[in-house]
Amino acid sequence: MKKAVIFDMDGVLIDSEPFYFKRRMNFFKEKGIHPGSNKFEDYVGNSEKQTWEMLVPENEEKQKELHQEYLKYKQHHGIDFTKALRSSVPYVLNILSEKGVSLGLASSSPRNEINKMLTDCQLEKYFSFTISGEEVTESKPNPEIYLISREQLNCESYLAVEDSTLGIASAKSAGIFTVALKQAFSMDQQAADIIIDELEELLKLPRLIK
């Protein structure tokens, strides 16, 4: 049976959500503007579009203006993906690849962020298919991103690895067995089929070793 594992990026492969949140809040503080929400949990798992709708609600013109300024701000306040990468990721991806498991990446992040992470961390070789939040009509929790991933990977058995409530809902709605990676902060992961503490636990799952 041909198997596939589809990974989310932020919160799963890289521990990036706290960095992104702090960067956004610092940007708004420097601008002297109050964001629509300053609660960390309101942003976890969101697409770029969802994030900015939360940051600047009910003012699309202002939202677009600040987003463009933020894109320039990001260039001078970039994340070091090699430091954000979870230490076990290369090992886990290598073992799964050696077992003949097809690997996919389904992230709500922009395409350029995904590509930079894969390049900086030298992970491109492991993934048969990658898709960003910019390449779907509806973002998570809509299942579209996982339905497309399933179709492109063309396997008989699928497993998704997620962290956020939205991501778990997306994978489950696509009919995929979903593993949630426990986070250091509070996150509703109850809808997942199982919850793991470390990515290495994937290598012991009966769905992948049988």
Rank of each mutant, 00 (worst) to 15 (best):
G104K: 04
H34C: 12
A84K: 02
I114F: 11
K3W: 06
T130M: 14
K172I: 11
E134M: 06
V56K: 11
Q122H: 13
Y91H: 14
S157C: 12
M117N: 07
T119L: 14
I195Q: 15
Q50T: 02
D120H: 09
G11N: 08
V89W: 04
L103K: 04
L13A: 08
G78L: 11
G11R: 05
E30L: 13
N59V: 02
P35F: 00
K204M: 15
S16Q: 07
S107E: 05
L66S: 03
A106G: 01
A4W: 06
K29E: 14
V89Q: 07
E156Q: 15
K172Q: 13
I168N: 12
P35W: 00
K3N: 00
I131K: 07
S102M: 14
V101I: 15
K72P: 01
D80Q: 13
Q63P: 03
V89C: 12
K99M: 14
K39M: 07
D197L: 02
M54N: 12
L13R: 04
A84F: 02
L13Y: 04
E60D: 13
F129P: 01
S164I: 02
F28K: 04
T82E: 03
L71E: 15
E162I: 02
P110T: 10
L203K: 01
E162L: 02
P90I: 08
L199D: 09
K182N: 09
R86L: 15
A191E: 15
I176M: 11
M1C: 11
L205P: 00
M1A: 12
P141I: 09
G104M: 06
Q50F: 05
H77G: 00
H67M: 09
R23E: 09
N142M: 04
Y146K: 05
E69Q: 09
K31F: 05
L166M: 07
Y70G: 07
